[in-house]
Simulated assay, not measured.
Amino acid sequence: MHGEYKVPGGKLVVVDLETAGGVITEFALAGDFFLEPDDALLDINRAVVGLPETADVPTIASAIRHALPEGAQLLGFTPESVGTAVRRALVTASTWSDFDWQIVRDPAVSPLMNLALDEVLTQRVGDGLRAPTLRIWEWDRSAVVIGSFQSLRNEVDPEGAAKHGFDVVRRISGGGAMMMGAGQIITYSLYAPASLVAGLTFADSYAFLDDWVLQALRSVGIEASYQPLNDITSPHGKIGGAAQKRLANGGILHHATLSYDIDGQVMTEVLRIGREKLSDKGTTSAAKRVDPIRSQTGMSRDDIIEAFMGEFRRFTGAETGHVTEQELAAAEELVRTKFSTEQWLRRVP
């Protein structure tokens, strides 16, 4: 069995193993990490042999830690990352390169259509009717998109939204509200099969699926990192956040919104950002919570998106694709029957 795990912001961990009688009988660790002393690699290999094939990541990591010599240095990986690679091998997880990816950046549609397309394309990937896809959102009007479980009245100031021309809509994933002002943010969605994140905890899957965008941000001069559970940050502050929805058919929706040039004052008038949330983020002003990409790069939004797509192509070998007429029709029907309805919008009043 073979398993791979790219440590977010770190190195690639590769394991090969065999099992018999319910235990791991042979094990070999490899990767582009750094490890001192050299023979600590053999200590790690010996620590994993004999573990039950049902061992979870903490159990595997604990066995490795106990086996390491005093003063051993692991750079670019951890005992937990080895455990994750083992779990991915045991459940036969896929890697990014196992799929023929597409990148979609089609003309702008309404915010409601973007939400409906997320559900339609995730369903189709899960059903095996579409290749795994990265889609860059473009929209034809401003909107506030609230999370699936957020209270409408607690999150949005209707007078502020109306004053600044923001529609209010609800998505299928959890997480917090995002403001989709014209030219102010960059939003993308990944539609992937569940096998890509097999063996990962739900929390770890966030950083795993967004590691490519951290590399893209670094390529344009932003020292980006991931802050659990779902924030993308830099030394100057928060850049954006991610959310997920997993469908019963095995399709995974993972999407993220990054701030390009947000007007912090408008945000405070449209969103009801409570003191507890600000305190949790360690800030005293909503306007300071989001650090725009523009202020750190000086690049246009289009140039940033091109850099993102270029990094994703390099990372996955993705080809250019488009949403099909059939998929658009299905999304339009979902807008009519679900996303545009008061029942959906106000399902958490």
Score class of each variant (00 low, 15 high):
residue 2 H to S: 13
residue 4 E to Y: 04
residue 5 Y to P: 09
residue 6 K to T: 10
residue 6 K to I: 07
residue 7 V to K: 13
residue 9 G to E: 02
residue 10 G to Q: 07
residue 11 K to G: 08
residue 14 V to A: 03
residue 16 D to R: 10
residue 20 A to W: 08
residue 24 I to D: 02
residue 31 G to V: 12
residue 36 E to K: 06
residue 38 D to S: 13
residue 38 D to K: 11
residue 38 D to G: 09
residue 40 A to F: 01
residue 43 D to Q: 03
residue 43 D to L: 04
residue 45 N to H: 09
residue 46 R to E: 03
residue 48 V to Y: 02
residue 49 V to S: 10
residue 51 L to A: 08
residue 52 P to Q: 11
residue 53 E to R: 13
residue 55 A to F: 08
residue 56 D to C: 02
residue 57 V to Y: 11
residue 63 A to T: 07
residue 64 I to S: 08
residue 64 I to Q: 06
residue 66 H to G: 09
residue 69 P to S: 08
residue 70 E to F: 05
residue 72 A to N: 10
residue 73 Q to G: 01
residue 84 T to V: 15
residue 85 A to Y: 05
residue 86 V to K: 01
residue 87 R to V: 03
residue 88 R to Q: 10
residue 89 A to D: 12
residue 90 L to D: 05
residue 95 T to F: 00
residue 97 S to N: 14
residue 99 F to D: 12
residue 103 I to F: 08
residue 103 I to K: 00
residue 109 V to N: 07
residue 111 P to H: 08
residue 116 A to L: 13
residue 118 D to A: 11
residue 121 L to K: 03
residue 125 V to Y: 03
residue 126 G to A: 05
residue 134 L to F: 14
residue 143 A to L: 11
residue 146 I to K: 05
residue 146 I to A: 03
residue 149 F to R: 14
residue 151 S to G: 15
residue 152 L to E: 06
residue 155 E to T: 15
residue 161 A to V: 11
residue 164 H to K: 07
residue 168 V to Y: 10
residue 171 R to T: 05
residue 173 S to W: 13
residue 173 S to C: 04
residue 178 M to S: 12
residue 179 M to R: 01
residue 181 G to K: 01
residue 182 A to W: 00
residue 182 A to T: 11
residue 183 G to Q: 04
residue 183 G to Y: 02
residue 183 G to S: 06
residue 184 Q to I: 01
residue 184 Q to H: 08
residue 186 I to W: 04
residue 187 T to H: 03
residue 187 T to G: 01
residue 191 Y to I: 06
residue 200 L to D: 01
residue 204 D to C: 03
residue 205 S to W: 00
residue 207 A to C: 01
residue 212 W to F: 09
residue 213 V to L: 14
residue 220 V to L: 04
residue 226 Y to L: 09
residue 226 Y to A: 13
residue 228 P to Q: 09
residue 229 L to N: 07
residue 233 T to A: 04
residue 235 P to R: 04
residue 236 H to A: 13
residue 236 H to R: 10
residue 245 K to D: 04
residue 246 R to V: 13
residue 247 L to R: 08
residue 250 G to W: 03
residue 252 I to P: 01
residue 256 A to C: 10
residue 259 S to I: 08
residue 263 D to C: 00
residue 264 G to V: 10
residue 265 Q to P: 05
residue 265 Q to D: 14
residue 266 V to Q: 05
residue 267 M to V: 09
residue 268 T to L: 00
residue 270 V to G: 00
residue 271 L to W: 09
residue 272 R to G: 00
residue 275 R to Y: 09
residue 278 L to M: 15
residue 279 S to T: 15
residue 279 S to C: 01
residue 282 G to C: 06
residue 289 R to S: 14
residue 292 P to N: 06
residue 293 I to N: 06
residue 293 I to G: 10
residue 293 I to H: 05
residue 293 I to M: 08
residue 294 R to Q: 09
residue 294 R to C: 01
residue 294 R to N: 02
residue 294 R to A: 07
residue 297 T to F: 03
residue 299 M to H: 13
residue 302 D to S: 15
residue 304 I to V: 15
residue 305 I to L: 02
residue 309 M to T: 12
residue 310 G to S: 15
residue 313 R to I: 10
residue 314 R to M: 05
residue 320 T to F: 11
residue 320 T to D: 14
residue 325 E to S: 14
residue 326 Q to E: 14
residue 329 A to I: 01
residue 331 A to K: 05
residue 335 V to Q: 03
residue 336 R to G: 00
residue 337 T to S: 12
residue 338 K to I: 07
residue 340 S to Y: 15
residue 343 Q to Y: 13
residue 348 V to Y: 15
residue 349 P to K: 11
